[in-house]
């Protein structure tokens, strides 16, 4: 059944008029209220292409002549579940950014467990779905790197080697899968930034981040890449023992925005998780910025699409109350 807030091109574009988030990532004006769009998207079909394009227009993503890096979440492949960002969504984003005259759009990821990235991408359907994928993809685990000294880190990280593909882009697009996570509660657009670290330096997994503090490292990575847009694959998510061993959960949404804590907080609400109880969100944005009143929602409201994800027994305390 469709909600009364069902999105049409007209009302999404109308919503765009209140989107203050910026024209280009480099000169974006900080919004008074972070804007997050929720679109209903029931399946990975051809309508995804139009949906993603509408999201970018709604957020006034002006990327003409700029370099864009799409960063999906590629972890492992298991045909029985939904671990990775769906390749059709990534291809839709690629086409949408191209249609907005981006100078270059690349897909880049540094998987944390499997060393043979291209085989993983092949198993996950990327070669089949994205034409010329091989030429468009950068394995961040083996990319050229630059050491970067973090400014005011909250984790134990001090200097981090980052891939030049990511350091050199004008807009990074975090494209995670909407999943529960057995250490931090939920893995979304901020946690997805773990994949930016080069395995060629830190190994598989990037265990240095665990020792530096998982939540704190997420906060530091987010602070390091402020020019980031998020498009969350919530069409088929994962509940239970995510991010790998959970079970598929159909949520039927795409969630997008420039403010990653706000995007992730909105995803949490859709999943029936209280964002204020997710440590890295609270540490990164503060409790106030995560409240409903601090986030302007375009298109759907989270209430109209909320579908509680199953939480492991140890995470029941994260459950969002009925609101």
């Amino acid at each position: 059944m469709q909600s009364p807030h069902t999105l049409t091109r007209r009302n999404l574009l109308a919503g765009a008029s209140v989107v203050l988030a910026g024209s280009s990532c480099a000169r974006r004006i900080a919004p008074a209220r972070a804007t997050v769009s929720i679109l209903r998207q029931s399946a990975y079909d051809q309508t995804v292409y139009d949906a993603v394009r509408r999201l970018l227009i709604a957020h006034r993503v002006n990327i003409r002549g700029k370099r864009v890096v799409l960063k999906p979440n590629l972890v492992e492949f298991d045909s029985a579940t939904t671990i990775n960002t769906h390749p059709l969504l990534v291809h839709a984003a690629l086409e949408a950014f191209r249609s907005l005259d981006a100078a270059e759009v690349r897909i880049a990821e540094g998987p944390g467990h499997r060393r043979i990235t291209m085989d993983l991408a092949e198993a996950a359907g990327y070669f089949q779905t994205v034409p010329s994928f091989d030429g468009l993809f950068t394995d961040l685990n083996l990319d050229e790197i630059t050491p970067v000294r973090l400014q005011r880190p909250v984790s134990k990280l001090r200097t981090v080697y980052f891939p030049n593909t990511v350091l050199g882009c004008d807009l990074l697009v975090s494209m995670p899968k909407m999943k529960t996570h057995h250490w931090v509660g939920a893995t979304l657009s901020m946690k997805n930034l773990f994949g930016l670290l080069p395995g060629g330096v830190y190994g598989w997994p990037k265990n240095v981040l665990h020792w530096a503090g998982i939540n704190e490292s997420i906060v530091d990575l987010h602070a390091q890449f402020p020019n980031t847009f998020a498009i969350v694959d919530g069409i088929e998510g994962m509940e239970g023992n995510g991010p790998i061993q959970g079970t598929p959960k159909h949520a039927g949404v795409l969630v997008a925005g420039y403010n990653l804590p706000a995007v992730d907080a909105t995803c949490c609400r859709i999943m029936g998780i209280d964002p204020a109880k997710i440590d890295y969100l609270r540490m990164s944005a503060g409790t106030e910025a995560l409240t409903e009143s601090s986030i302007l929602q375009a298109a759907e409201t989270f209430r109209s699409v909320r579908i509680d994800f199953q939480l492991l027994p140890d995470f029941q305390s994260l459950r969002l109350g009925t609101v």
């Binding site: 330096v201 830190y202 190994g203 598989w204 997994p205 265990n207 240095v208 665990h210 020792w211």
Partner: peptide, 9 residues
């Protein structure tokens, strides 16, 4: 370990 001062794999 892969990297100093981290766990063994």
């Amino acid at each position: 370990p892969w990297f100093p001062d981290t766990a063994a794999w």
